[in-house]
Each structure stands twice: as C-alpha cells, then as structure tokens.
Amino acid sequence: MDTAFKIENLKVAYGETVALKNINLELYPKSITALIGPSGCGKSTFLRTLNRMNDLISICSISGEVYYHENNIYDKQCDVIELRKQVGMVFQKPNPFPMSIFDNVAYGPKRQGVKDKETLKQIVEKALKQSALYEEVSDRMDASALSLSGGQQQRLCIARALAMEPEVILMDEPTSALDPIATQKIETLLDDLKKEYTIIIVTHSMHQAARISDYTAFFYMGELIETSDTNTLFSLPKKKQTEDYITGRFG
C-alpha cells in the first residue's frame, strides 16, 4: 500500500533528555491515524517531527529518517516551507489570528501570493464549508475571529489549514480544550475530511481514537510499543503494555 510517511530509526532529544527513540512506523494516506499513550510519552513530539515544527526549539536534535513522498524531510535540500504547505497542523488550543474570520482563512494563500479577491473568496468559502463552519459565519466574515466560541475557533483553524490544500493534516489533541458538543462536531468533520486528506491525530482519549481512527499507534515512554489498524489494536493487542493501557490499568 501507498505510504504517506515512512519513519525509520527516529530519535529525538531535547538537549540531554531523550524524548523518542527507535521509532519505525508507516503512516497511510487518506485515513485517520491516531497516536495514543499516557502524558509525556512523546506523541506530540513525534507529531511535530512530521512537519519539522521541532526546528523551532534550538536544543532539539534529531537522528533517523522521516520519508515523505520518498524524500527524507530532514535532508539539507528539503525546503521546510514547501513541506509545511503540504503538511498542515491544527493545535491543541485554538489559535486564530487577531484578524477577521475571512482574513484568518485567507492568510495562508495570501502569503503565497494570491491577490485576486474573487479567488480568495472562493478559497475561503471552500475551506469554511469543508470545516463545517461556513453556515455559521457566512454573514459575518469580517467579524473578529476572537468573537467565535472555542469550538468554532477550532473549526476556523481547521479551515485555515485546509485553505492551503495540504495533503496531510496533523492534529495535536484538537478537541481536548473543547466541550463534548463541539468535540462531536469536529469528530464528525474528521470523518468527512479523511476521504480527501491524510490525518494524523494525537489524542489523550483512547475512546476518541477508537471512535474515529483507522489506524492507531501506541507510544509509551518515548518508544513505539505497537501499531496496527484500530480494531485489531483495541480488541487483540499484541503487547502487554498496550493491553494495560487500553484497559485502564494506567493512564
């Protein structure tokens, strides 16, 4: 099968502290892969290596390879900015820019040089529809993004990422700051999005992983313990640690 990402022997350290080691994993396209594990197990760090957001931390060092479309993204020639256009990210706490709703979604394309007003309008509309927000905001596109509720803001951030028409969307616990209703809206949304996009989602809730994902990877103490399709992982886990985590013996 086609792979979106192929990770080989990945090791990530912050200074002296090793956050991830011996990571070997394949991530598949047009599906949802959930990364689960207890706090501090390294899943967020892993997610951020996929779009090289760890570059922002100066003491972070990386070894191993991360292949995206046959190319190691940690190669010297890799253009980080190009990579991030194709691999988008949604953060745990919604972080819309202090601008209008329209400007938030149009931000990415504008920076890439899209100037035509009509084109921008179309892009913004499409993205907002894809993130199931359009109906709620179509009459106030010029209002400040900060006037939206938490759940709406997160969907706005998803729209903002979608406006760049990426292949992959990385999500770092996107619903942990939201109430159950908003969470459900987003989970429904993801189910739709996975038809066109590859979604890698870090979640602290195994239940969420079980609900929405096609594949699951279980991390523990910086290592990848087990990965397989979700059904198998949750019903017939191969490793004892996986079973212990799933059955709630530790969290």
Partner: peptide
C-alpha cells in the same frame, strides 16, 4: 502569544 507564530509557520509561511 507564541502559538500565533507557530500557527503561521505551520501554514508554510
């Protein structure tokens, strides 16, 4: 807020 910068960078700017 640093997260605003992160959001922008994550969009490929």
């Amino acid at each position: 807020d640093l997260s605003l910068e992160e959001a922008s960078l994550a969009l490929g700017t």
